[in-house]
Each structure stands twice: as structure tokens, then as C-alpha cells.
Design a protein around this nucleic acid. Structure first.
Lengths: 263, 263
DNA sequence: GCCAATTGTTTTGTATATAAAACATCAATA
DNA sequence: TATTGATGTTTTATATACAAAACAATTGGC
């Protein structure tokens, strides 16, 4: 706190609040009025007015259907996709994930670790059955998911301990690790197996396979993942077909990133 | 100008410059250093420092691979996808566009008009042949494309004239309309046909079908679009199969939006 | 290994962004 | 139609964000 406090002279309040306006409008399902924004941010209307004025002029906000209401503008989309295309792995992985989806018939995903969360960078939905909501850009807690354990396998024990420090880990299901020790057990298991297969760990009736992607220096940088409702999986084919296909795809992505190991 | 000038007392400069930092880093293919950012924005290093400091603390920027370099952070992705999910049409249209892709085997897209540009909201790539780059979030000039004419068909002649006012319309190909009159001719053609079919209007060897989507009050709000390389199209099937399928999909989306017309 | 040039960080006087208050406009209710 | 409450906009005195300059740390060339 003391460190952040004596550095906060550098904080640009106008920028901070403007971005909060964007976050609040992003979280809101419906356009908001000036006064609603001001209240949500605990800010004077006059200040909110200036923020909205600026954001609107820059096309980061646009007018809602109702008069005097505002929503996110298209400029934020530009930023979002600039982010994606600046992640070289997404462009490398996309066609390979599409192919994996086509050969297996199951939804495929690419994700990375962002802080304590799993961040989905892209997905290819199964062509049969119900398709889930768009998952790109969504985050879930890493400690509680198979994908998270897969991504955490790149960390050393010390890093993993630091990861757990100050993180509360409520149990989502009875299989959820709730301490450093139990999480480490999961991650160690992943390290020896080279993959994670889960059934209903996070959502009842949902199964998934998670396999890591390595970069030049052998670091785990992403995770390839097959997932869907149990009804979409043919369990007989899981170990004989789905798993090897997923591992092959992850390895091909790793190779394109310069990985030269033999995992 | 006079109006915007005497209103600029309301402009929040910190916010304005902070967002420009994000835009510049989004446009850059590679992480940038503090000084590079300062130069790109024609700003003092000390000010750039404060902006970067704030953005980093809010996780809109994160550290690049190299030391003292910065890239867009994951928070901008959140905003981008908040924008998409706040557009009800994307969630309605997604499964229908996927289905259209599967029945035709050709890439499908949904787009809307944003200012003078066509903005792609989502796409489903063909399963065969080369897949294009991710197009969601990209923009192209409306006046020069079949999709643009389709989207502009919702405007009255007066609105279309206003649209052209002060817009320079360089010819992209020899078919590109370069004036209000020639653009209006294209749009009128679209209005009588109810669709646009184009071959190589924008990219040589590329073909596309564009059909409008209407909302409750019969306004054109979006465009459904099949497109791909000529080699991906079976031209015999175009009018007998692709076009009716595309129109049916657009109509189903329109119906879900509350459209009750018979187009 | 030295020097020069470039970059990141801190300080500080001054120009200016800010929030309170006043004002204007609108919507709802009696 | 008059009255009340809430919202959007403008003004203005004051707190503060800002850029120049100084400083520190790093890098590159000879």
C-alpha cells in the first residue's frame, strides 16, 4: 500500500474514470443515462458529463436507442480484436483448432493464463448439438478447472505457491482443490500424464480434455481443449481417438511456436 | 467547427490521450516502449509515463516480452466482447449463420453499418479451402462493397446524399461507384432485387452474396453475407440454392428481431 | 572501459481539469 | 395546467494534473 500510495501521484484520474465508464457500460446489459453512470461511479453529474462527452466524441460510446442513453461504441471492438491479433498464437492456432473440431466433431478452445484466470482466446463450436455462448474473451478461475491445472503446470512449485497466496479457493464441486496442497496434487498429476481429462468437474454433465502448448523455451503458454456435454462425447473413443488427436494438435501448435521438445 | 470548439472545455485530455495510447498499441504489431509511445503521440515522456502507469495499473496494458515494453492487456478483450454481447443481433444470428455455413459449405458473415464503414460482427468460416483471417471487428468502406450497398439500402435518398457528403470515394475497381449518383444506382438495384451478388468487386477472384436483415419497424439493421473465393462457389447452384438459403436465413434473423414483413 | 546518447523516473511551478452550485429542460402527477 | 422532482448543461473558484527540466539508469559504439 505504501508503495502504491506514494506512486499514485502518477495516476491520471480522468483516464481511470473514463475506463471505468466503459467497464460499467460493458457490464450493463442495457444502455445507461448520464445520471445512471454518475450514480454507478459515485461521481458528480458534471464530471460524468465530461467523461461521456469525451468518450462519445472518440466513438468509444455511442447513443443508445432511447434518448440520452449510451452504450459501448464500435471502437472498443477494434481494440479487442487488435489484442487478439497481437497474440501470435491465435493466428497460428486457429486453423489447427478448426481442423481438430472437424475431425472430432467436438468443440475446441484455445486459452491462456491471465492472472488468476483462464482467458479464452478462441473457440470453434461443434457442428452438432446445442452450441454454447461465445466464450472468447470470457474468464474463469484457473484453480477450479481442468484447463487451469493444465496451464498452471508450467509454473514451478514456488510460483504455484505464490499463485495461491492470498487467493481464496471456494469449492465449486466436491472435486475442487481448495488449498495449495490439493491444487499442487492436481497439477502434478497433469505433469506426469501430460493431459487432464475431466467429467463434470465444473459443470455437471460437461466433459473436457486439456493439453498444454509449449513455446521455444519449453514454457507452457497456452492450452488446447476439447469440451462439450457428455452426450457429445463417445467415451470409448476418448483415449483411443480424441486424446491423441488433441495432443497432436497441441504439439503442432507448439512446433509452430518453435518448440523442439518431444512431449 | 465553431460548435465543437466552444464545447471543447468539456474534453478530458487525460482520457483522450489514454485511449489514443490504446489505439496506437493496438495498431502496432509489436510491443512498444514508453519513448516510442511518447513519440508516436507527440507527447512528453513524463506524460506518457503517467498514462502508461495508469493503464498498466488498470490492466489495460501489460508488459511485453522485452523489458520496458507494453502491449494491450486482456481488459480490452473484455470490453470488445461486452460490446458484441450487448448487440442482441449477434447472439440471435450466430447459430443461424453457423447453420447456413454448414448447409452451403461457404463462409458466412454478419455485418452492420458503423459510420461510413461496414463492421463485421461475426463470421463462420468455410470448412474447406483456405480460411481467411479473422474478420470480426474489421471495417471496410461501405461505398465500395456489395455488403455496403446492401446496408445502405435502408437509407432514404436524402440520408444517402448526406452519407456521401464530404466522403471521398476513390475507385477500388472499375466497378466502384465514385459519386452519389452511381452509388444510388447500386443501392436502388439492391432495393428492387432484394439482394446483391458480386464477383470480384473488391478482391479479384472473390465472390459474395449480400442480403439485408430488418428489425421490428422494417429498418435495415444488418446484412447476411456468403463469401469466398470463386473456386469455393458452384455458380450453377448460386441462384437455385445459395441465394434462397441466404435469403431464408436473413429472414429468420429478421423474424427473431420482430420483423413481420414479407420480404 | 569510457563517453555519448537514449530511456525511465522524479520533482515542481503553473496552467487547467474539476466538482459544487446555478441554471435549463423535461416528465410525471395531481 | 401548475408543481415537483429529476436530469442534462453551463459557469466558476480552487484543487490538481501537467510538461519542462533535472536526475538516474541503461544502452551502444569506438
Amino acid at each position: 500500500m505504501s508503495e502504491s500510495a506514494n506512486h499514485d501521484i502518477y495516476f491520471v484520474p480522468g483516464l481511470h474514470r473514463g475506463l471505468r465508464v466503459l467497464e460499467i457500460l460493458g457490464a450493463a446489459k442495457t444502455p445507461m443515462s448520464l445520471s445512471e453512470i454518475a450514480r454507478a461511479m459515485d461521481l458528480s453529474r458534471s464530471s460524468a458529463f465530461r467523461l461521456v462527452y469525451t468518450l462519445r466524441q472518440m466513438e468509444f460510446l455511442k447513443d443508445g436507442e432511447q434518448k440520452n442513453t449510451y452504450t459501448l461504441g464500435a471502437k472498443v471492438l477494434n481494440l479487442g480484436f487488435a489484442y487478439l491479433s497481437n497474440q501470435p498464437i491465435t493466428t497460428i492456432a486457429r486453423p489447427l483448432l478448426a481442423k481438430l473440431r472437424d475431425t472430432t466433431g467436438v468443440s475446441t478452445h484455445l486459452s491462456v493464463l491471465e492472472g488468476h484466470n483462464v482467458l479464452y482466446l478462441g473457440s470453434h463450436q461443434a457442428r452438432t448439438g446445442f452450441v454454447s455462448n461465445m466464450v472468447t474473451g470470457t474468464r474463469v478461475e484457473a484453480y477450479a478447472t481442468a484447463i487451469g491445472w493444465c496451464l498452471l503446470s508450467g509454473k514451478s512449485d514456488a510460483e504455484l505457491a505464490a499463485f495461491c497466496k492470498g487467493l481464496d479457493m471456494p469449492p465449486i464441486t466436491k472435486h475442487t482443490p481448495t488449498s495449495f496442497q490439493t491444487l499442487k496434487a492436481r497439477v502434478d498429476q497433469m505433469r506426469t500424464d501430460g493431459f487432464v481429462v475431466s467429467h463434470g468437474f465444473r459443470e455437471p454433465g460437461g466433459s473436457s480434455i486439456a493439453v498444454p502448448v509449449w513455446d521455444q523455451v519449453g514454457k507452457v503458454v497456452a492450452c488446447v481443449n476439447l469440451s462439450g456435454p457428455d452426450s457429445g462425447f463417445d467415451f470409448d473413443k476418448l483415449k483411443s481417438f480424441y486424446l491423441p488427436e488433441t495432443k497432436a494438435t497441441a504439439l503442432r501448435i507448439s512446433r509452430e511456436l518453435g518448440y523442439e521438445g518431444s512431449n
